[in-house]
Design a protein around this nucleic acid. Structure first.
Length: 859
RNA sequence: GCGGGUGUGGCGGAAUGGUAGACGCGACGGACUCAAAAUCCGUUUCUGGCAACAGAGUGUCGGUUCGAGUCCGACCACCCGCACCA
């Protein structure tokens, strides 16, 4: 290897740690808790990781994207806050405890140490001094304080709600732990069970959370749309239907509808299985009781409920129509959601597809009430498809002849007049249930006292820390079985009382961490000057899977905390970027085993064989990297083999960052080759370059200098717009130009090579420092330098190529001087032989000229 | 089921309504080498043609326009989210 004939190569393994140390030693990435001086602030944040133990390519992509932004903004003169921490509570630690007997805390902190080391090798411009984990008592203790403030402000309350219950393990299951309606561990059929739980009153902010979306100009439209749909504002009416004979003391059923205009199309009324009326009907009817039990085994997830086959049972009860006095049957239906509206609907099969399917299945009538424009009222029939669009009302008594909008108004007026209903705005958004029956989470700091009720833990007793001696061998919540932990004296009356054993949803932890990062060591949860100085986060980056919940909860917390005067920030994240997933081909043997990428040989045509057996394997593309499919690539191994810069460069070059990318070995080796090529360009040029002070002569190497300044402009624009793959492409092109100009004016070449070194710095920061130190020994680090400016005068072109079309088809291209007059351009274009042939002697009827772009002749 | 997104060569992708396929990967041909690796040069959307050139072409069908990958309408396929995974 050290043979004199071997060409010199860039030794990334030596260089990368060296530059990382230099950045740390010079504290290049440190900023004060309160932004100071006249440099504008810029807060770059990537969604902090769950410490699973190893970083995966999704993390590498996420943090590379953030680091490009952080380094670029720093070069543009901002003081950049760029912290990192750990979303450290959650189920996997408890699973590890159950499966391997390792304590969640020990497991988690070991994972954090391992992942921190891996992240540090990536050369990210992070300020590690601000690091914390949400499982640190110094973090979650402050969270408990915030919860007590929520309680005082009336933003937290106890309510009952339904959970997935495993009757064998005696434990609450997450939706992901419910597989085909059964508990993942026990295999028992899951039931819905009602528990009293803590809720945060996010619905109080629903109107604001919705209207403020408009102001989030640097959020993807689709994320805003998803949030708007999630919040789900809908205008409609609540309508009360009196029961013909009250059941279980219930005299009437209230439904919510967005279509009061279709009330005359009613054919039945349906309630959710959890509705009180359902329980009343089941009281002395075992068949109904059995049906309710069956529906309860569907689980609590909306997807499971709505995807299930539509089923129902007639309760035998009947309700009276407020307008006609007619009576209709009351059904219990599995597609009616207790959580939405009032948990009851009136069924109008002609105007709602779900109602129609239900009516057809149970042979209920389908009276049509909305006439599509142009349809004949005498012959109009509903087949397999409900008519859900606007139209003209008919068969609808006093509403006949009205349009949809007027019909709604008239129906609501009539309902209000006779006291049978009111026009209302309904929200899909529900209050946020934050209670979890788990050990590895932040304890909810309240005490239940027989005499005093719910008593907040006094401030001076915070934090309420988790006990360390816990037993995971029993099913259920370990905090609940702990022999002593929950037994405490009531802070109010002193009598024996019981500590709350539920812990917070981990989404609570991540709803304010971005604010804590501004003053991570403070003795109070937040320091207003720090939070106000840095927030909102200027650029937040993470996966699209968080588009709704995490972002919405953070927006809610930001408003709540601002409302309580803890800080003043209208929104947590001014700019949001959602990255795509990292995928990899997966390989499956004939016998069904999944094979890891290093267990197969991939041929040139893409087919693959099992290295061990030589048998062909099935290759599938575009699979999300996952342990189960064994198609993960370990970032650590990639960095060992190719270096952090290569991994970063490939990830940026592959495709636009908001799309899913495919990790390929070929792509990595290509990126590696390019880093060596750049290094070689500088290495080979060094002996021929003049001193840095020598400026290129005015007209020396114009092509090269034009390319240099055009590249600066193009890369700058690409970085500004998150088009990192385009930035990479422009630098590739520039390298091609550099190679073609190795004999050009030496000062121009120095200018070009120095530009190359600095333009790659957000993306390949180590190589940038290496090249810069070669070109300018002893000069300050690239990490401390301002961004390059393009000189428009040098970048300007002398001539321009115009496409010439005849009837919109390309027939020739012409080269004209910049600023040539239109007549000359048309004459030149017309004179082209190919243009003449295409015109075939026909007169030109119209001449179109788009300066700098195109000439089109219409003949 | 509801909501959201994506679709361009062999592959990843580029393209303010204006030359479709920049740039990279792969492949093929060549140079260097005893040989290989590394590196460099060239070709590479498809069809026809020696070529000049012509025709077709951005998931499908239709529309607007001098001109559509881009705008509009309908459809198809795939992916993601759905409140206790993080």
């Amino acid at each position: 290897m050290n043979d004199a004939a071997t060409p010199a190569r860039y030794d990334f393994a030596a260089a990368e740690p060296r530059w990382q140390e230099a950045w740390t030693a010079q504290r290049c990435f440190s900023v004060p808790d309160v932004p100071a001086g006249d440099r504008p602030k810029y807060y770059v944040l990537e969604m902090f990781p769950y410490p699973s133990g190893k970083i995966h390519m999704g993390h590498v992509r996420n943090y590379t994207l953030g680091d490009v932004v952080a380094r670029y903004k720093r070069a543009r003169g901002h003081q950049v806050l760029h912290p990192m921490g750990w979303d450290a509570f959650g189920l996997p630690a408890e699973n590890a405890a159950r499966e391997r007997g390792v304590h969640p805390a020990q497991w988690t902190y070991a994972n954090i140490a391992a992942m921190r080391a891996e992240l540090q090798r990536m050369g990210l411009s992070l300020e590690w001094d601000r690091e914390f984990a949400t499982c640190d008592p110094s973090y979650y203790g402050h969270q408990q304080k915030l919860f007590l403030d929520f309680l005082k402000a009336g933003l937290a309350e106890r309510k009952e709600s339904w959970v997935n219950w495993d009757p064998v393990d005696h434990t609450v299951l997450a939706n992901e732990q419910v597989i085909d309606g059964r508990g993942w561990r026990s295999g028992a059929v899951v039931e819905k069970k009602k528990l009293s739980q803590w809720f945060l009153s996010i619905t109080k902010f629903a109107p604001e959370l919705l209207s403020a979306l408009d102001g989030l100009e640097r959020w993807p439209e689709r994320v805003k749309l998803m949030q708007a749909n999630w919040i789900g504002r809908s205008e409609g009416a609540r309508v009360r239907f009196a029961l013909e004979t009250p059941a279980g003391g219930i005299p009437e059923v209230e439904v919510f509808t967005t279509r009061p205009d279709t009330l005359f199309g009613m054919s039945f009324l349906a309630v959710a299985a959890e509705h009180p009326l359902a329980a009343a009907a089941a009281a002395n009817n075992p068949q109904i009781a059995r049906f309710i039990t069956e529906v309860r085994s569907l689980g609590t997830s909306e997807a499971a409920i709505e995807q299930a086959e539509k089923r129902g049972i007639d309760t035998g009860l009947r309700v009276r129509h407020p307008f006609t006095g007619e009576t209709f049957p009351v059904w219990i239906a599995n597609f009616v959601l207790m959580e939405y509206g009032t948990g009851a609907i009136f069924g109008c099969p002609s105007g709602d597809q779900r109602d129609l399917e239900f009516a057809r299945k149970y042979a209920l009538p389908v009276p049509p009430v909305i006439l599509p424009p142009g349809a004949d009222p005498a012959s109009f029939q509903i087949g397999d498809t409900a008519y859900t669009e606007d139209g003209t009302l008919f068969n609808s008594g006093f509403l006949d002849g009205l349009g949809t909008a007027e019909g709604k108004r008239a129906a609501i007026d009539a309902l209000e007049k006779q006291g049978a209903g009111t026009g209302v705005v309904n929200w899909r958004l529900r209050d946020w249930g934050v209670s979890r029956q788990r050990y590895w989470g932040c304890p909810i700091p309240v005490i239940h006292c027989e005499a005093c009720g719910v008593v907040p833990v006094p401030d001076e007793q915070l934090p309420v820390t988790l006990p360390e001696d816990v037993d995971f061998s029993k099913s259920g919540n370990p905090l609940d079985h702990h022999p002593t932990w929950k037994h405490v004296g009531c802070p109010s009356c002193g009598k024996p009382a019981r500590r709350e054993t539920d812990t917070f949803d981990t989404f609570v932890d991540s709803s304010w961490y971005f604010a804590r990062f501004t003053a991570p060591k403070a003795g109070t949860p937040l320091v207003a000057e720090a939070a106000n100085g840095w927030l909102p986060v200027d650029q937040y980056i993470g996966g699209i899977e968080h588009a709704i919940l995490h972002l919405l909860y953070s927006r809610f917390f930001t408003r709540a905390l601002s409302g309580m005067g803890k800080m003043q920030a209208p929104e947590p994240f001014a700019g949001l970027f959602t990255q795509g997933m990292v995928q990899h081909a997966s390989y499956r043997a004939k016998d069904g085993r999944w094979l890891a990428p290093d267990e197969v040989d991939v041929a040139a045509d893409g087919s693959a064989t099992d290295k061990a057996t030589g048998l062909p394997v099935t290759v599938s593309r575009n699979d999300k990297m996952s342990k189960s499919k064994r198609n993960t690539i370990d970032p650590g191994a990639i960095i060992d083999q190719f270096g952090a810069d290569t991994a970063r460069w490939f990830i940026l070059s592959d495709n636009p960052p908001d799309r899913d990318m495919e990790w390929t070995t070929a792509g990595v080796t290509g990126a590696s080759r390019f880093s060596q090529r750049l290094w070689r360009l500088v290495h080979n040029a060094l002996p021929t370059l003049p001193a840095p002070e020598v400026l290129p002569a005015a007209d020396a190497a114009r092509d090269l200098r034009r390319a240099t300044h055009r590249t600066i402009a193009a890369v700058t624009e690409a970085l500004e717009t998150f088009a990192f793959n385009v930035a990479v492409a422009r630098i590739h092109e520039f390298a091609n130009v550099l190679e073609a100009h190795q004999g050009a004016d030496a000062a121009a070449r120095r200018e070009a090579l120095e530009a190359a070194a600095r333009l790659i710095s957000p993306m390949m920061p180590h190589l940038a420092e290496e090249l810069w130190s070669m070109l300018r020994p002893g000069a300050p680090l690239v990490a401390t330098l301002p961004w390059l400016e393009s000189d428009a005068e040098i970048a300007k072109a002398d001539s321009v190529t115009l496409a010439v079309q005849v009837l919109g088809k390309l027939r020739a291209t012409i080269e004209v001087p910049v600023g040539a007059d239109e007549a000359t351009i048309f004459a030149t274009a017309e004179a082209e032989e190919n243009v003449q042939r295409a015109l075939a002697g026909r007169p030109i009827r119209k001449r179109i000229h788009v300066p700098g772009r195109i000439v089109n002749f219409v003949a």
